[in-house]
Design a protein around this nucleic acid. Sequence first.
DNA 1: AAAATATTTCTTGTCGACAAGAAAAATGCA
DNA 2: TGCATTTTTCTTGTCGACAAGAAATATTTT
Lengths: 234, 234
Amino acid sequence: MVEKSNTDVVERRRGSGVKLVYDILRDEILDLKLAPGSSVDEVLLAERFQMSRTPIREALVRLAGEGLIETLPNRSTLVSNIDLLNLNTYFDALVLMYRVTTRLAAQNHRPDDLLAIRELHSQYAATVEARDLRDMIAVNAAFHSAIAEAGRNPYFTGLFRRLLDEGRRILRLYYNSYDEQFPQRFVDEHAEIIAAIEARDLDLADHLGKVHGEQIVEQVQRMFVRNQKLDIKL
Amino acid sequence: MVEKSNTDVVERRRGSGVKLVYDILRDEILDLKLAPGSSVDEVLLAERFQMSRTPIREALVRLAGEGLIETLPNRSTLVSNIDLLNLNTYFDALVLMYRVTTRLAAQNHRPDDLLAIRELHSQYAATVEARDLRDMIAVNAAFHSAIAEAGRNPYFTGLFRRLLDEGRRILRLYYNSYDEQFPQRFVDEHAEIIAAIEARDLDLADHLGKVHGEQIVEQVQRMFVRNQKLDIKL
DNA sequence: AAAATATTTCTTGTCGACAAGAAAAATGCA
DNA sequence: TGCATTTTTCTTGTCGACAAGAAATATTTT
């Protein structure tokens, strides 16, 4: 499982425990530190985080609400599996949300938003430079999440966040083979998107969002097929 | 508050309590039986449902996850307010989801789906006939939810469900004055939508979904303005 | 030895009690 | 009386313990 110091926190403020556990488990799930299908034991977590099962349970209920874990009644709770059979529905939703959020960002962004977006853009470039895959994926999600935020539609932002989260798992799953050309291309596309948003060119932003999304989809599909072939060989 | 027999259930199967409380509270919130902003007391609920606070709390955490209630740390939990200032973002999302789900239903539906949709369609017609406002709103949401289901994209279905839920509250809020022409028109539009889905005419389904959505939006906006004026007079 | 049955184990679900934090009420002080 | 301070009250947050359900193991029976 996960080898960690067994005392993540010692002294805590009332009410903060749930958020702590929720945040850590969520990250571990999305980074595949907790494998899909692996079991999540309340008692073990209670020991690890030095608290009773009650706040642990609350964190798990929230994670279940977002579909990151699944509860088998009276038996066990598992990290949700990645649904590879229905990737196409995932891609449909992802591309549409790329379009919509980028378009709305071009329409509704304010000066501060661009600052935050640019900051994450350069962070992303840095992770590409450092060839740090895990951070690259996480920061990329944060970058697009910031764009969605600038679009100021909480309904779209909420769905998009979930999709980006799931994307973190999918990308980690298939990104064993580090592809040289892929990340740098994305840095450039990100720059174009920022420019379109700043220029308040709705249609261009929409279009670039679409292209960017389809780019990623195609990339993942290629990796998917490649891995499929490897699986068959085994 | 709500006057109800204080013993909703007596003998229960382990694990079923949370779902029971969740379902009942959710319905009461969406039907405005629980007013936005009103407080939700864990102890009172525990007494009402004859169980300890633990399962009550779990139900509340889930409701909070869907934004139906809000928790003020260490103080109280309230039924979420309806955000009338940002109705336009709500409408944006709603119309887009009307389009997308109807289009996908035309593309992906199976025979059984049409059965379910038709059943809800006639149920809706019946509620219009009976002039039962509360049921009309709830069944209308169920009808469109079934269409989304037939589209087989859980990401879109999930968001659309939330939007339809929120719509139940908004409609109940403004639908004091029962408007004759409105519901019958919707029955007809529903029939057209079903036909487009069955014919697998994606573009027509998309278009009808859009028109239908905009129809509702316009209606609500009219009611909104009317009520605004009334408010000013008071 | 195989199948049916009983027992144990393991994990979740529920409970009642207590602690902490914040607001409301009461008290003291000018 | 008006304001600051203390006390009380009220609700949520956390805990440890126990019960229930299901799977795994052991036992019995044929």
